[in-house]
Design a protein around this nucleic acid. Sequence first.
DNA 1: GCTTGACCTCAACTTAAGTCGAGGTTGTAG
DNA 2: CTACAACCTCGACTTAAGTTGAGGTCAAGC
Lengths: 153, 153
Amino acid sequence: MAKELTVGQVAVRSGVAVSALHFYETKGLIQSHRTGGNQRRYGGDVLRRVAIIKVAQEVGISLAEIRAALASLPDGRTPNRDDWNALSQGWAADLDRRILQLQKLRDGLTDCIGCGCLSIDRCKLRNPGDRLAEEGPGPRRLVVAPSRNLAGA
Amino acid sequence: MAKELTVGQVAVRSGVAVSALHFYETKGLIQSHRTGGNQRRYGGDVLRRVAIIKVAQEVGISLAEIRAALASLPDGRTPNRDDWNALSQGWAADLDRRILQLQKLRDGLTDCIGCGCLSIDRCKLRNPGDRLAEEGPGPRRLVVAPSRNLAGA
DNA sequence: GCTTGACCTCAACTTAAGTCGAGGTTGTAG
DNA sequence: CTACAACCTCGACTTAAGTTGAGGTCAAGC
């Protein structure tokens, strides 16, 4: 068997706090088995998983979505290159969408804020791409982080 | 005087919940004066301010940063086009940085996750642009939302 | 002049992604 | 075999950006 890692070792080698590793485990993002004394031991692939988690987070993906994506990895065997590849495909596509959205936003920003046209009702920034189109008054749903559903990727 | 608006009217016309308007006021993002009966009344420019707040949020700017930026607007007079323009300049620049960062991330994603090179120590995604370079083990500072300081804009 | 809807304050709750500390156990080096 | 570092669980705390509700007041139409 490959060498097993303790939480502390994983923490050092992944650059993630022990508390975060515990947290990820409670959220089902990583797994461990326990020694007789109830201490966690990790297989080598946990480092890869943690790396994926951090990269995905940096890209703006929530832990819930990451969990869903990681859940699509094979359960029995160690994931191979194709498995990881499938993951990255979906995220790269999502990233593309997000980049496009930001570009649209940037292009509209100067126009909209700067020029005085920001009229709330017909401004292209306030209503980007028709979303939130016509829902009447009252609170809109929270649209701060515009990441789409990519759990199925 | 231009017509004054109640919170409810501002809520309907801006598409923001009354509770959010109260919240923005406690945070110093908008102001009101009060009637004899202690009810809020807003000037017309509040709609503009709220619009800016929502647009900026969509772009990923925090309320604290928005507050700082709005604080740079003239206090006595109603902000004019140039004032708003100065605001948008800084944010557009920040947006550009963010877009570039995301593009770098996307380019690295397939390479890094897909190809099997994701080695934690020397991966270009795990250490994008040298930040977080060498700080030893232990918890890193929170770097989930990579927006830079733009309060001064 | 009263009823009803809009408004007021304040405190508690929410979610995400963890951190921190207390109090107790394990494992390993000397 | 003992000391001490590393581990365990659990609950409370943090920040952002609000929402929800309780308990009470204001204002406008009939």
